[in-house]
Amino acid sequence: MSGNDGSLVAAVRERLAQESGPVTPDRVAAALRDTGAVVGSAAADQVAEVLRAELLGAGPLQPLLDDPEVTDVVVNGPRQVWVERAGVLQPTEVDLGDAAAVRMLAVRLAATGGQRLDDARPTVDARLPDGTRLHAVLPPVADGCTLLSLRVVRHRPFTLADLVAGQTLAPGVDQVVEALIHARANLLISGATGTGKTTLLSTLLSLADPAERIVCIEESGELHPQHPHVVRLLVRRANVEGAGAITLEDLVRESLRMRPDRVVLGECRGPEVREVLGALNTGHDGGCTTVHANTAEDVPARLAALGALAGMSPHALATQAASALHAVIHLRREHGRRRVTEIAVVTHEPGSPVLGVQTAVLSPFGAEATVGPGWARLAERIGWGG
């Protein structure tokens, strides 16, 4: 943008500041006309776009977020902006000015997501209006400069055929996961951060019978199944006085009174594990949730840790999980590629506090899927016989 255009942006910004109310595209256009500047339509569009990005979007970072190949944007300093493309972090030429400008951007983005970010509360997790996930840390917790992490959430729906074409699902594995949905199996999708758990869950829920009512419970609306009957419950954070919070545990309990056919918890990472396992043990088959774990074998330990947060004994957790969960679907990411590498069944000896998993389908990167020792149990659950 030229210097003249920069002056025009400043003039429009000043006019917008003279009136209260939300900054809308119509107000931007009106303020531009009020400046009396004679500009071509292309220049006017450019000025309006810059202002919308600055006042409504992520400012200088907005073009990066709009890039369809970008999945993450991280800011380490005013001139240290990185993006992730195809699983690889790359530096950019974006210049945010100085540390004060980075802080102002972080505070504004947090406010856009309905969260407070200041010296009294120097860290924040928020969801921007377009679905982008924001995490920000202010100094002195962040050393030197405010740190920003933005994860782009693409709402593009995927089909099973898309996931097979992209090698997320090996040929044949797609039939297994589809059968699990049709058999109303209770599913736990596991994987590390960024492996595609939410994407896979949205795709699987799209396969559910259109006559079923799906209740999705989330911290923020990430699940977007292509299904005609989906309702969503979102947590509410406490206000500045620390009151008014509605937690995931609260919402799981509320969902059971909403005539659900499937109860879906977007991510289980705390004491809500008690409620979701309880729900899946009370006749609500077809439920799903996701959990962070590095391997399928790590899932029992992860569940035990979450159960401890909920005050559950190891024996109670193992007993509940063994009867509630019919399959664990594990995802991995390597070199920017995502893949369902294992489907397992949960094992548990009666009276034992130990929970385990047994591989039913193994599907490593670059190899065909093979069955494992847990296949007979999984095949029986989906009605494929032994």
Score class of each variant (00 low, 15 high):
residue 351 G to A: 14
residue 131 G to L: 02
residue 113 G to W: 01
residue 112 T to R: 13
residue 306 L to I: 02
residue 238 A to R: 13
residue 78 P to S: 10
residue 182 H to C: 02
residue 299 V to L: 11
residue 253 R to W: 00
residue 62 Q to K: 08
residue 378 L to G: 05
residue 99 A to R: 14
residue 133 R to H: 01
residue 288 C to I: 13
residue 4 N to R: 15
residue 364 P to S: 04
residue 116 R to C: 03
residue 120 A to M: 06
residue 251 L to M: 06
residue 327 A to Y: 07
residue 340 V to S: 12
residue 162 D to R: 04
residue 151 R to H: 05
residue 276 V to S: 05
residue 111 A to H: 07
residue 203 T to I: 05
residue 289 T to A: 08
residue 6 G to E: 15
residue 336 G to I: 02
residue 52 R to C: 04
residue 247 T to I: 02
residue 177 V to K: 08
residue 307 G to T: 06
residue 305 A to I: 00
residue 363 S to F: 03
residue 66 D to S: 07
residue 190 S to V: 03
residue 50 V to H: 13
residue 214 I to W: 10
residue 202 S to M: 04
residue 298 D to C: 04
residue 350 P to V: 00
residue 241 E to V: 02
residue 182 H to L: 09
residue 234 L to Y: 02
residue 58 A to D: 07
residue 78 P to A: 14
residue 245 A to F: 04
residue 370 T to A: 13
residue 60 P to W: 08
residue 120 A to G: 14
residue 244 G to L: 00
residue 207 L to T: 13
residue 203 T to H: 03
residue 2 S to A: 09
residue 14 E to V: 07
residue 308 A to P: 05
residue 42 A to V: 02
residue 23 V to T: 11
residue 229 H to I: 00
residue 211 A to I: 04
residue 92 T to S: 09
residue 360 A to Q: 12
residue 374 G to P: 08
residue 142 A to N: 06
residue 45 D to T: 12
residue 92 T to N: 13
residue 96 L to R: 11
residue 218 E to N: 04
residue 284 H to R: 03
residue 240 V to W: 07
residue 244 G to M: 00
residue 134 L to Q: 02
residue 233 L to C: 02
residue 312 M to T: 08
residue 297 E to N: 10
residue 216 C to K: 07
residue 105 L to Y: 01
residue 57 G to N: 09
residue 335 H to A: 15
residue 251 L to V: 03
residue 174 D to L: 11
residue 259 R to F: 03
residue 48 A to C: 08
residue 325 L to V: 15
residue 318 A to W: 10
residue 6 G to K: 14
residue 131 G to F: 03
residue 19 E to R: 15
residue 342 E to V: 06
residue 196 G to N: 06
residue 386 G to K: 13
residue 343 I to P: 01
residue 237 R to V: 01
residue 353 P to M: 15
residue 121 R to L: 08
residue 185 A to K: 07
residue 56 L to E: 14
residue 67 D to H: 08
residue 238 A to G: 11
residue 192 A to M: 06
residue 198 T to S: 15
residue 356 G to T: 02
residue 131 G to C: 02
residue 5 D to F: 01
residue 135 H to Y: 04
residue 1 M to V: 12
residue 325 L to T: 15
residue 335 H to P: 06
residue 53 A to N: 14
residue 154 R to F: 01
residue 229 H to K: 14
residue 97 G to L: 02
residue 76 N to R: 10
residue 202 S to L: 05
residue 329 I to F: 14
residue 86 A to G: 06
residue 18 Q to F: 01
residue 51 L to C: 09
residue 100 A to K: 08
residue 62 Q to S: 13
residue 12 V to I: 06
residue 16 L to G: 14
residue 330 H to T: 12
residue 179 A to V: 00
residue 263 V to L: 07
residue 306 L to V: 03
residue 213 R to H: 15
residue 52 R to T: 06
residue 179 A to I: 00
residue 186 N to F: 04
residue 264 V to P: 03
residue 100 A to H: 07
residue 234 L to S: 07
residue 95 D to K: 15
residue 214 I to C: 13
residue 321 A to H: 10
residue 117 L to C: 01
residue 246 I to L: 13
residue 99 A to I: 00
residue 79 R to C: 01
residue 126 A to G: 00
residue 191 G to D: 01
residue 135 H to Q: 14
residue 105 L to R: 05
residue 145 C to Q: 11
residue 247 T to N: 07
